[in-house]
Amino acid sequence: MSLQRQTFTGFQNLSLCADVGGLADAPPVILLHGGGQTRHSWGRAARRLAQAGFHTLSMDLRGHGESGWAADGDYSTDAFIGDLNAVIDTLEQPPVLVGASLGGATALLAMGEAATVRARALVLVDVVPRMSPEGVRHIRDFMTGSPEGFANLDEAAAAVSRYIPNRAKPASNEGLLKNLRLEDDGRYYWHWDPAFQANGARERLSDLYSRMENAAARVQAPTLLVRGRQSDVVSEEGARLLLELIPHAEYVDIEGAGHMVAGDRNDVFNEAIESFLQRLA
């Protein structure tokens, strides 16, 4: 099942890029990646869901991948929510929201803070209202660790290996090109706006976590939490808190996966997501 590139107009008229697959009138699923990633992190999951009978939309978040960069540097939580709501408004039926890390926080807030129903189900991928400070620092250190970029793909691959040391190395580094941009200086840079970290970090995590906790307590739709058992971002305690806030939520803890669950154990992850979606009324 091939995916087709499509553009949407987001909050403040920002251009958003997505890979779209499946029949247009099929139940929609919106896939939202984590901070610093791109829509390509969902590649196999998006194609599998399209083959399973869902209309899949895998988005590049603002400032990431081929989506537009905010001219005013607005990478606030509310801007990401505004983009998501703009895409939801183009659909004829409420979608299922599947979000990892930043994408999951955005999906949770879009659902829990909305006055009307925005989605029919929610899948949170290694994200909860109370995340491990050490894990969050680990992510930020990686994202800010190479401001000078990379001379070649091997250097970029080495940075990824330091960040995720237990992941098997691919036979080729060519896949990294989906997450890098080549600038005029001949160097490769991660495919996100540097202002995303600089400006987005102005929001206090404590305020964001409080918003997420309040939003989670209001979620009535079917919900699935997928955690990577070796995650340094979502602890068992953090998962339990989420399940207390959303007592009807289902929970899958995937062995052998860290924070990047879909990349670490893709087949197991896809099976968990598809099984949950197929059980929805």
Rank of each mutant, 00 (worst) to 15 (best):
L3R: 08
Q6V: 12
F11M: 01
L14F: 00
L16T: 08
G22P: 07
A24E: 14
D25N: 15
P28V: 03
G36C: 07
A46I: 08
L57Y: 01
D60C: 04
R62H: 03
G68S: 13
D74P: 03
Y75Q: 00
S76W: 00
D78G: 00
A79D: 02
F80V: 00
D83T: 10
N85R: 15
T90F: 07
G99N: 06
G99E: 07
A100F: 08
G103D: 04
T106A: 01
T106W: 00
L108A: 15
L109H: 03
V117G: 01
A119Y: 08
L122Q: 11
V127D: 03
S132A: 15
P133E: 10
E134P: 00
E134K: 13
V136K: 02
I139D: 04
D141M: 11
D141V: 12
M143W: 11
P147L: 04
E148I: 04
A157I: 00
A157K: 05
A159P: 08
S161G: 05
S161E: 13
R162W: 01
P165W: 09
A168F: 02
G175F: 11
D185C: 06
Y189P: 03
Y189T: 04
Y189A: 07
Y189G: 06
P194T: 00
A201Y: 01
R202V: 02
L205N: 10
Y209Q: 15
M212K: 06
E213V: 01
R218A: 11
R218H: 08
V219L: 05
R227L: 08
S231P: 12
D232Y: 01
S235C: 10
S235N: 07
E237N: 11
E237I: 09
G238S: 08
A239Y: 06
I246W: 07
H248W: 01
H248V: 02
E255N: 12
V261R: 04
D264G: 02
N266F: 03
V268E: 15
F269N: 12
E271K: 13
